[in-house]
Design a protein around this nucleic acid. Structure first.
Length: 311
DNA sequence: ATGGTTTTTACTGCGTC
DNA sequence: GACGCGGTAAAAACCAT
């Protein structure tokens, strides 16, 4: 199915950052359309590619320095709505029931409840304000949609109401909340990316996130290799057919073989093999680099995958 | 802290262009 | 010879306990 394309787009150039709701996906060609996601994101209905600005990680090499620069650049004013302490009406967890497991739905419900209780808690004052503004800063620096900020804010409030903040830094908790929220809202960032723009000790932030996640029982969806295929695949400029093959490869390998393995590496391996099978080969080095793993791990994951696609 | 698991680092051999 | 690929050993990182 194809929706209207009401502008004379020239097929050559990719749509650079046009905020329109309907564009063509630069990844998968003709048949696919782009839809304004309920997350305030533009997402390709076919390949799941997220089109809004920094959805695709621009480059591998930006550790310390770039992060700081980004911080400075990200000084634009946050939208006030999420920051108000009485957030009031509009704040809800924007979530798509469609791909929500019953479990996640239940947990989201609990999140909402906590949010409501926290709303009028008198003690929530300075720390909350600081946390929320930090959340906004991070959210903006990571190029994430507003819904993520809202979810992160709710998580933060819930943390606050559970005394999670005791002995933990506001900044670290904010970073953890943003990371979790990004994943919950389906626009994940790497923890490393968040850490880069965040303030504080990386290891501490990692720990904080882990605790936060388990203590609040956040409905953070598992990163599934299928979803990573779009991201890595686009970096490698692999055609849609190859991605299909990769998905197929993954689909037919038993869970037990992938359990405990880094999903990114599984996806990378699947893409590598799929590319070969579909006569669009990429080197191991390229593939590994795009997925940010080493060629060694790539090879190891390769062993777990079937050698052929479905007939 | 500890132990089990995965990933990375570093290095090597083999075939091909 | 350089490049891509495959393997190994040991260190590092990660995670649950």
């Amino acid at each position: 199915m194809r929706t209207k394309v009401h502008e004379a787009v020239d097929p050559q150039t990719a749509p650079d950052g046009a905020p329109d709701n309907e564009e063509r996906c630069p990844e998968c060609d003709a048949e696919t359309t782009v839809q304004d996601g309920r997350r305030g994101e533009t997402v390709c209905t076919q390949c799941g590619l997220v089109l809004s600005e920094s959805a695709i990680d621009p480059g591998p090499e930006w550790r310390a320095f770039d992060a700081q620069q980004r911080n400075k650049r990200a000084r634009t004013g946050p939208s006030r709505t999420v920051m108000r302490h009485d957030m009031g009406l509009g704040s809800q967890i924007g979530f798509d029931d469609q791909d929500a497991s019953p479990q996640m739905r239940r947990q989201l419900g609990r999140l909402r409840r906590y949010h409501q209780r926290a709303t009028y808690k008198p003690g929530a004052d300075r720390n909350v304000a600081r946390g929320l503004s930090e959340i906004q800063r991070l959210r903006a620096a990571l190029g994430l949609p507003d819904t993520v900020g809202q979810t992160a804010a709710q998580i933060y409030r819930q943390a606050q109401s559970k005394d999670f903040l005791h002995g933990r830094s506001v900044e670290g908790t904010a970073a953890a909340a943003v990371y979790a929220a990004a994943r919950i809202q389906g626009t994940p960032r790497r923890l490393e990316e968040v850490i880069d723009v965040a303030a504080g000790d990386p290891e501490r932030i990692r720990r904080t996130y882990r605790r936060l996640n388990q203590e609040l029982e956040l409905p953070v969806p598992v990163l599934r290799p299928e979803e990573l295929i779009a991201m890595i695949g686009s970096k490698l400029e692999l055609p849609q057919t190859v991605r299909e093959t990769a998905r197929d490869l993954i689909a037919r390998t038993p869970e037990t073989r992938m359990a405990g393995k880094n999903p990114t590496s599984v996806a990378a391996a699947a893409l590598y093999r799929a590319a070969q099978l579909d006569d669009e080969p990429r080197t191991q080095a390229e593939t590994a680099e795009a997925a940010d793993v080493t060629t060694v791990t790539l090879r190891n994951r390769l062993k777990d995958l079937p050698e052929q696609a479905a007939a």
